[in-house]
């Protein structure tokens, strides 16, 4: 808590700094999920860039991704620390998953923006995806490729509920080295990925009902994440780490889809 008090103006730190913040606060409209830090944490005001120095990340070309890969090992260690840090500050598996989801959400917002710039900025007729299935396809291929370097393995539609869709990844790179202990078998660290998907869908205008804000605290903000991750190992043990990202749509989105047909 001392950390948040020391930085009351900077909500970036409040996401994980204290366990005393309830989850509802995290999901409120003023939560750090939707805010930007007041002070840039990276010095972007470098004068003339010195030669032999890697260009600042903001100065690099948006679409040249060939040399922009990140070491999988470094990321594995970072993500491992993220999970450990988060685990020390939560009271249960649900809370842990929600916090990973929030962290992923912050990445998803940026991924969406970056992808839109990459694909639409050179297009003669830029567009935003408003139909759900094409949006899901672009998450399955483009978002996955931008984040994980490969497309996801399958898209499925629930046979029981018409508002549920699933993205399946047979071997998610971020959980490749993670073995969940038996007593936490419900946990899926891919909640992080679910957060990314949720942010992209939110940004495209799906999942949450933005048009009818309810006062004072819109009910959808206190609901658990609408995009969740589940362990679904395949039967033949071929993919023990297979993970399903489950997307539950708002009723209003389905109605809108019907109208657009």
């Amino acid at each position: 808590m001392a950390y948040t008090q020391a930085n009351p103006q900077n909500p970036r730190f409040s996401v994980l700094s204290s366990s005393s913040l309830s989850s509802a606060e995290h999901l409120s409209p003023n939560s750090s999920r939707f805010s930007l830090p007041n002070t840039p944490s990276i010095n972007t005001t470098l004068g003339t860039p010195r030669p032999n120095l890697r260009p600042n990340i903001y100065d690099r070309h948006l679409s040249k991704t060939r040399a922009a890969e990140v070491s999988a090992s470094s990321f594995a260690y970072l993500f491992s620390e993220v999970v450990q840090y988060t685990q020390k500050r939560v009271s249960g598996i649900n809370d842990l998953e929600r916090r990973l989801n929030i962290l992923g959400y912050r990445i998803g917002m940026r991924v969406l923006e970056l992808n839109v710039w990459r694909t639409e900025s050179t297009s003669k007729a830029p567009k935003r995806e408003i139909r759900f299935l094409p949006a899901l396809m672009s998450i399955h291929t483009q978002v996955w490729r931008a984040v994980f370097g490969k497309p996801a393995d399958a898209i499925e539609k629930s046979v029981e509920n018409d508002d549920e869709y699933m993205i399946v990844d047979n071997e998610p790179p971020i959980t490749r080295n993670i073995s969940i202990p038996r007593d936490m078998s419900q946990l899926s660290c891919s909640s992080f990925t679910a957060g990314i998907v949720e942010a992209v869908l939110d940004g495209l205008g799906f999942v949450h009902d933005w048009i009818l804000p309810k006062t004072p605290l819109p009910i959808q903000y206190v609901q658990p994440a609408r995009v969740t991750a589940h362990n679904t190992p395949s039967d033949a043990d071929a993919y023990p780490g297979r993970t399903t990202i489950l997307i539950k749509l708002e009723r209003s989105v389905i109605e809108r889809e019907e109208l657009l047909k």
């Binding site: 993500f79 491992s80 993220v82 993670i178 073995s179």
Partner: peptide
């Protein structure tokens, strides 16, 4: 290094109870 050190549920210097390592 892969299965134990990168696993967030392993405590360093403690007995290795990591399924991935066994497999």
């Amino acid at each position: 290094t892969e299965a134990v050190m990168k696993n967030p549920f392993h405590t360093p210097e403690m007995p290795i109870r990591t399924e991935g390592f066994d497999t």
